[in-house]
Computed example of a mutant assay.
Amino acid sequence: HVCTVEDARAAVAACRYSRPAGSANFDPAGQRGDGPGIAAKYWGLTQQEYYSRADVWPIDPKGEILVGMMCEKVEAWKNLPDILDQVPGIGLVVIGEGDLSQDLGFPRQYDHPKVVEAMTDIRRICAEKGVVCGHPHVNPNNIDGLIDEGYRWLMASPTRSFAALEKGRARLSGQAK
């Protein structure tokens, strides 16, 4: 629920290590705590190698941390141009269509003109600011349309399978061995 410039600045700052004031790419000032041991091991790096990569892209072109925000309230939509203009480091905006449609008063009515207008405008703003726009509910039935609309970060909807449950029920009822 990043809705304001201040929210966005705090999100980016939370992903960055502190550095001396006046350092290159200082803003937003990092607030992340030290202690890279586990992350460095997970990344397969020494701690110093990790420090050289553990910054926010695109603030640091060598940074390997991508900060994304979800635009899921009308307030966020209206503030999005200011957020993207004033906060370096937002590399991705995902439209939280469920919450956004709720906030607009048309819960999960994704074809409602007001919801379509909001989502279209968010994509337009992202395109104008050079920031990738994402969609969180991609499936085989909507993928072509989402790409045509300009989404470039696509999160597949989870598949739900009850195969194990069905097998367990059959086994417990004596129908399978």
Rank of each mutant, 00 (worst) to 15 (best):
K177I: 06
M155C: 12
Q47E: 13
K41Q: 13
R108T: 11
Y51H: 14
W153K: 15
A76S: 03
C126M: 02
G150Y: 00
V5E: 10
A13W: 01
P107C: 15
A21L: 14
A8D: 01
Q86F: 01
C126E: 03
L165R: 07
P28L: 06
Q102W: 05
E128H: 06
A156L: 05
T120C: 04
P107D: 11
G134T: 00
G35T: 02
S52K: 15
Q102N: 10
N79V: 01
D99A: 02
D7F: 02
V116D: 02
L172G: 03
I65Q: 04
L92R: 08
Q102C: 13
K73S: 15
P61Y: 04
D103Q: 14
G105E: 11
Q86H: 03
G105L: 13
G98A: 12
D34V: 13
A24P: 11
G145A: 11
R19W: 08
G150F: 01
L146S: 08
P158Y: 05
S173Q: 09
H112M: 08
R169L: 15
P158C: 08
P58K: 05
I38V: 12
C3E: 05
L84V: 00
S157I: 10
E149A: 11
G150K: 03
I95D: 04
P136G: 11
G37F: 11
G145W: 03
S173Y: 04
K167Y: 10
P81R: 00
V93Y: 02
A11V: 14
V138D: 06
A39S: 09
R16P: 14
R171V: 11
I90A: 04
